[in-house]
Design a protein around this nucleic acid. Structure first.
Length: 224
DNA sequence: TAGGCCATCTGGTCCT
DNA sequence: AGGACCAGATGGCCTA
């Protein structure tokens, strides 16, 4: 729970029952076992290139090579031995050694895939607002997804309200009517979310936003 | 100790 | 045939 105090709104915290409390009760200090891996710290969403493997790489066979994972090493959670019977009787008409080598490469691929997935989740964690601190345990996978979903919904709602406000302001300008207090949380003069100064690359940036985007930019509005 | 979360292995399925 | 994706199973780690 503690790590969520940095969130600006309660609106998107309504995680599905069962995940919210448990996931956030998870926030106890954990001796720094799992700090942020930082692969996405600088942002850049989809730009991941297998940078930080974190603890996964430490415990997996990726360090020691694919030949050692699971079968002999008894990697955690590896039920390989129990099921080896199935493997031996596999449909592939290959020698046991080839089967084994094939299995190892499949395992390694799957491990890489899961690491990529985890990196993507880390990237998601880095852009949703919650307490990113080494002393705070990171969000669980399911909590990350639920929180991200609710955050997106909240942002969409905020954008919609902003558009309504801008539309009202534009209307008000034409009529020279004062903005009702309920629709003017910022004070007397219109406040542009992109600031009073010209936005670098203003036209391009403004048109990057659909619909009423240009109305959100003072620079665009001031243009003759 | 129970429960939650996670990493890993594994076999099946689908796609290229 | 090989790779990607998926879901089930298993065992380890950690916290309440």
């Amino acid at each position: 729970m503690a790590e969520l105090k940095s969130l600006g709104s309660e609106a998107y915290l309504a995680l599905a029952p069962g995940y919210g409390p448990s996931a956030f009760a998870y926030g106890a200090v954990r001796g720094g076992a799992e700090g942020p891996r930082g692969a996405f710290a600088g942002g850049g969403g989809a730009d991941f290139h297998g940078g930080a493997m974190g603890k996964s790489a430490e415990s997996s066979g990726e360090q020691s090579g694919d030949e050692e994972d699971g079968f002999e090493a008894g990697v955690k959670g590896g039920p390989g031995f129990e099921r080896e019977g199935k493997l031996k009787g596999g449909a592939l008409g290959k020698k046991p050694k080839e089967q084994r080598s094939l299995r190892l490469s499949i395992n390694a691929r799957e491990r890489r895939r899961m690491h990529d997935l985890n990196d993507a989740l880390d990237g998601l964690r880095s852009v949703i607002p919650y307490a990113h601190s080494p002393s705070v345990r990171k969000l669980s996978k399911i909590a990350t997804l639920l929180l991200a979903k609710n955050y997106i919904l909240m942002q969409a709602q905020a954008l919609e309200e902003m558009r309504r406000l801008v539309a009202y302001l534009n209307q008000g300008q034409a009529l020279s009517a004062p903005l009702p207090a309920t629709l003017n949380p910022f004070g007397q003069s219109p406040v542009y979310p992109f600031g009073g100064a010209a936005v670098p690359g203003c036209p391009e940036k403004c048109t990057a936003f659909t619909g009423a985007a240009s109305a959100l930019c003072k620079h665009c509005n001031d243009k003759p």
